[in-house]
Nucleic acid binder design. Structure first.
Length: 445
DNA sequence: GCATGATCATGC
DNA sequence: GCATGATCATGC
């Protein structure tokens, strides 16, 4: 028998008990011996529950929170030093909440959903991710957070949940993507690779990858930030009921056909003769109601704002580029580990302008977009070919625009001399993935 | 006119 | 100084 020094029915007491871990690894607190003999060596969260709380993890965990009496679900997640300042932390990855059961989910209603039952109130512990250390030796950092979704966020999460459910009802579980939704995402969960066992879905014979509900990394960062301040977000609860998507699109109502200068004037945005590269993004943000260089709601949802200028014939002036990739790292990664994969699974918000016959740039429309399933498959092919080319070293064989109707690879450095090493010891001009202009044209029209 | 290659501009 | 987003330049 163990003596508990906390009250398992009190969320606040559970949080206080978690604080004892700060600055230590689990091994330091409960001893190595116990962990070596742990029945479940898999998940750090489970180990914390078993050994730090001495609480027997429930087995029907998909339907009830870990600490049943307190209604608290325990989550343990990795953070890394934030780029730039190195002082604060940021999420290492998405926070996986609970598995998606394709057959069960379709019969659920949001209010009584197993997701909500389980995740309404979460105690989130953060550890410093260090690759070289086993999980039980990683140190806990930051104050544990007792997280209850604000009403405004919960409304958006409900929509996300319903959208995922709808896709399964439509027999499209295999087409799910993290870019479908805003805060809550259906992330890949499972072994991956050739050994993976695909899942059956209720309304189609096509097998689907195993997925889990997760909070996007961007949302996890918002939770992390909340440990420093209680930021008041713009907007209000009434807005949230309409959904982030609708609110955003409504901001652009009535602007169709107006010239950039006319819009700038009515939004008190500087009218510039020589427009800097970031001009249209800045104007779009102003229309969305912020003077900042980003929109908190978009940051939280991981939505990427892109401005697109179309020529009179409807073709975008430019292709869309992604970050430069490291040849060596890319050649070692799996598709799902790749940055390109991550990027094309994001949700985008396009603000589209078009030049008229007098070469005046006018607002055309705005739209949310995420890459359709078939095109993600095509993008994977382009990526695979790229990996192949890197490994053979025949760099002139990199996929070009004519090789795919979705994406291609092109230089992306300071200049030709700006290179990165190749696995074979040579080096080559920095490259990145691009979405084809024609493809973008098709998607926005 | 378009595909491809090359480079610029900005913010962190 | 560099990553990223944006844009220019060329040759077919």
């Amino acid at each position: 028998m163990t003596t508990r020094t906390y009250n398992p029915a009190s969320p606040e007491s559970l949080r206080e008990h978690a604080k004892l871990l700060i600055g230590h690894s689990l091994e330091e607190v409960v001893g190595k011996y116990d962990l070596d003999h742990a029945a479940n060596k898999g998940k750090l969260g489970t180990l914390v529950e078993e050994h730090h709380y001495q609480y027997r993890p429930n087995n029907a965990s998909d339907h009830e929170p870990d600490f049943v009496e307190a209604g608290v679900e325990l989550k343990v997640t990795g953070v890394v030093p934030r780029k730039g300042d190195g002082v604060a932390y940021q999420a290492k990855e998405r926070l996986v909440l609970t598995m998606i059961h394709y057959f069960g989910l379709v019969d659920e209603a949001w209010d009584t959903s197993s997701f909500l039952k389980k995740c309404r109130l979460m105690l989130i512990l953060f550890y410093l991710y260090q690759k070289e250390l086993p999980a039980t030796q990683r140190k806990f950092v930051m104050s544990p957070v007792l997280w209850q979704f604000p009403e405004k966020d919960l409304e958006i999460i409900r929509r996300d949940w319903e959208l995922i459910q709808q896709k399964i009802l439509d027999g499209k579980a295999h087409e799910l993507s993290e870019g479908d939704t805003f805060y809550l995402a259906a992330c890949r969960k499972g072994s991956g690779g050739p050994k993976e066992r695909l899942k059956r879905q209720p309304f189609s014979d096509i097998l689907a990858k195993s997925r889990a509900f997760s909070l996007k990394p961007s949302y996890v960062n918002t939770i992390i930030d909340s440990t420093w301040s209680d930021e008041e977000l713009i907007g209000n609860e009434k807005d949230a009921e309409k959904g982030l998507e609708k609110i955003t699109l409504e901001k652009f109502d009535g602007l169709e056909g107006l010239s950039v200068d006319e819009i700038a004037e009515s939004y008190d945005y500087p009218i510039a003769e020589d427009k800097p590269k970031s001009y249209y993004a800045g104007l779009s943000l102003r229309i969305l109601g912020t003077k900042k260089r980003w929109l908190p709601e978009f940051v939280k949802a991981g939505i990427v704002l892109k401005t697109i200028r179309l020529a009179q014939n409807g073709s975008p002036k430019e292709a869309i580029s992604f970050p430069t990739f490291d040849f060596i790292e890319t050649s070692r990664q799996s598709w799902e580990e790749s940055v390109f994969y991550e990027k094309i699974n994001q949700k985008f918000f396009f603000v589209i302008f078009q030049y008229d016959k007098d070469r005046v740039l006018r607002f055309k429309k705005s739209m949310f977009w995420n890459m359709p399933y078939a095109d993600r498959i095509e993008a994977e092919k382009v990526w695979s070919r790229t990996v192949e080319v890197i490994s053979t070293g025949n760099m002139e064989m990199l996929p070009k625009m004519v090789d795919s109707n979705v994406a291609h690879v092109r230089p992306h450095g300071r200049n030709k001399a700006d290179t990165l090493p190749l696995p074979n010891g040579g080096s080559f001009t920095k490259q990145c993935f691009w979405l084809n202009q024609k493809y973008i044209k098709k998607q926005v029209n």
